[in-house]
Write a protein that binds this DNA or RNA. Structure first.
Ligand SMILES: [Mg+2]
Ligand SMILES: [Mg+2]
Lengths: 403, 403
DNA sequence: ATTCTGTTTATAAACAATCAG
DNA sequence: ATCTGATTGTTTATAAACAGA
């Protein structure tokens, strides 16, 4: 007796096996260990459709031997259920960013595609000529892209870079640079987009804060989320990520994001491992009852990703702290950002080019709510002095930074 | 009816569940979907010992509720079988490196521990004083360690850094710097250690090459491995990693290592994805019959690790190439290394500090077998001009670099 | 001796883009 | 030109091995 049980992503045809002899022994009371038992994870409907497909000829119907293709087929047609070995949460929608780089003078043009996290995915660049000119914005020239010799080029010789954004219909149009509101808090800057003063250079709005005292629950409190689009702040687009019922559903954030949320929720910007566990469990009760192993995943993320830095303990026997690498950009709901202040320049936190693969200084003024409670309209110079660079991602409205 | 089936590494007590209703339906011919079926992955012996343990008091016997602890217990006592959900290959033994940093002048001392891949694991460093002096070696000052303000300090004011090595018995003793033999090939340098001339600065040995023509099978050919410890080259220690029977056993290398071996086996130092698949399958036939999904893992490694860089295709419709990031150090069997030449300086390949967290120029001359077949004894200056830095890891005899 | 913390590798998966037929 | 399945590439989740405190 043999039933197929598993199939990897790469091939549908071959199946793995699991030893069910112990289960059989218990279930049936016999000890026939010769039984070679496994089970199709394909549902019966899938099995039948697969069988019918395989028995027909090649050219007429798909083989579905490749599981990637099968699941792709599944997504396209939405009529075949291919149950995976391990069911995972659906991924948030991932976007890529197309940037048109061109230099009129040198008659060069290239289109570069980036992933959300800033990794360069492709470029058509002809190898014969290279785009090397750079834009002089009000904060200085744009940086060279991280792993590329291609730079973002000004389209007309002015100070506006030609960053083209592909909208949902696939049409390319130039990205716009907008003013930003900034609040200095928890060792960094909380930033939100202000779209209403797009065409008015002088229009710097005040951020009305009406937050209560006590624990900072800014990340899970719906009222705070609303507040960010309150007085004077026009939300550019509604928040696409809704908080699910925290009592039962899994939060739609990656482990890495959850850790980032935890770390920026404290005034000192650092936490012990145990505190991270507890913060996540308190804010997302899903993890109070979650399948065990999530703590393993937390530790895995802390260790793997360079944005999480272990700070040695205060003394022997005390627990170590985890902090965010200076300059880290944390993406928050409603297109807001938190930027960890780079207190030590680029010394400890890596080069600016590493932290901001798609960096661009904002062509805007900002109103900063400072840590001491006072409000200040800051000039570009102050922003620049703090190494306060804004990303193209933010402007495009759908950033997820690094990890 | 309930049988435990899965448990994660973090907790033994709680169990996951798998829906076996379909299997039961098939097996038993009934459709009693109310059965809540799962199965202990503990063997019966484990279960019994666990039961007895749990029924006794806390202080006398271990609870074995934590699976990490249980498996550790398992390794120690070797009498409890805790079958994991997914059985993995045993890891190669991992070593850490202890480096003693001290400055006599400033009366500061610190011991820093590094993982094999160069990540700083711990230091006792008092926060009151920092070690900032650096060694002037024959190739210039030592670099600051990657994520630390601690530098390797000379112990006595001379040009030898006090790198202390912990041997198998746990005793610390100073590391020695030895001459090296170098062959320029396949876009980088193959290097082997020459221990026989340790105390003779002038003794630069020749590397007798008797390799045949044709395909470069240097990584899987045992005769080549022997050759590296042939004329004039005393092997420091026997190779601890034996090639298993390639026909059936899995090679004791990580996916990342296999890809690195593949990439440095070609004269041009780059390969397409398909060629990587084929090289690995040809050299390690295990993968001809391996469980599917290993190709997924290869792609995963290529994409994840920064040492693997995708080079855009020559033209539309052609496949892209994968190369090693310049400066990458590939660890080979028998304590040999391959260092990818850094043709473009630190521009494309990241800073030297990133590539060589524990870098140290060798206090030695080298005999280079050049790509054109000629042999040349090179001076330090040439080595330096090529940014040819040696790692403390290599000297310690057990390096695994980055990923 | 056990638990907690931290590093690294393996494996499966979701899904985007592109290529081939 | 469009659909479809295969291939290539990026990212996240999960389990595991194992070291050291
Ligand atoms: Mg980390
Ligand atoms: Mg890569």
């Amino acid at each position: 007796m043999a039933l197929d049980l598993q199939c990897s992503q790469d091939l549908y045809g071959e199946v793995g096996r699991i030893d069910l002899s112990h289960a059989i022994e218990t279930l049936l009371g016999n000890d026939d260990k010769e039984n070679d038992l496994s089970m199709h994870l394909l549902t019966s409907s899938t099995v039948s459709s697969r069988h019918s497909l395989e028995s027909s000829s090649c050219n007429e119907t798909p083989h579905l031997l490749d599981k990637t293709a099968a699941r792709q087929h599944c997504r396209r047609l939405e009529n075949i259920d291919t149950t995976p070995i391990k069911k995972q949460e659906p991924r948030r929608h991932l976007n890529s960013v197309n940037i048109l780089c061109r230099s009129k003078k040198r008659k060069l043009e290239d289109k570069v595609r980036f992933s959300e996290s800033g990794k360069k995915l492709s470029s058509n660049g002809s190898k014969s000529g290279r785009l090397t000119a750079s834009v002089a914005s009000r904060f200085g020239p744009l940086q060279t892209l991280h792993d590329s010799n291609v730079q973002i080029i000004d389209s007309d010789g002015s100070t506006n870079a030609a960053i083209m954004v592909k909208d949902s219909s696939g049409k390319l149009h130039p990205a716009e640079f907008v003013p930003v509101m900034v609040e200095e808090r928890n060792g960094g800057f909380f930033m939100s987009q202000n779209n209403s003063s797009l065409n008015n250079d002088k229009d710097v709005l005040n951020y009305q804060e009406n937050r209560g005292t006590g624990q900072d629950d800014s990340l899970t409190n719906i009222t705070w989320l609303k507040r960010m689009s309150a007085p004077g702040v026009d939300s550019v687009e509604p928040c696409q990520i809704q908080f699910p019922d925290p009592e039962c559903e899994r939060p739609p954030y990656s482990y890495s994001a959850l850790i980032q949320f935890a770390l920026i929720s404290t005034p000192i910007g650092k936490m012990t491992l145990k505190e991270i566990y507890e913060w996540i469990q308190s804010k997302f009760p899903f993890f109070k009852t979650a399948k065990l192993g999530w703590k393993n995943s937390i530790r895995h993320n802390l260790s793997l990703h360079k944005i999480f830095i272990r700070e040695p303990p205060d003394g022997p026997g005390k627990p170590a702290f985890w902090t965010l690498r200076p300059g880290t950009v944390v993406r928050l709901p409603e297109n807001r950002l938190f930027v960890m202040e780079n207190k030590h320049g680029s010394k400890n936190g890596g080069s600016a080019a590493e932290n901001f693969p798609l960096q661009h200084s904002m062509d805007a003024k900002a109103c900063i709510k400072q840590a001491d409670g006072t409000t200040q309209v800051v000039s570009e110079k102050i922003l620049q002095g703090r190494q306060f660079l804004f990303t193209a991602h933010y402007i495009l409205g759908n950033p997820v930074f690094d990890n």
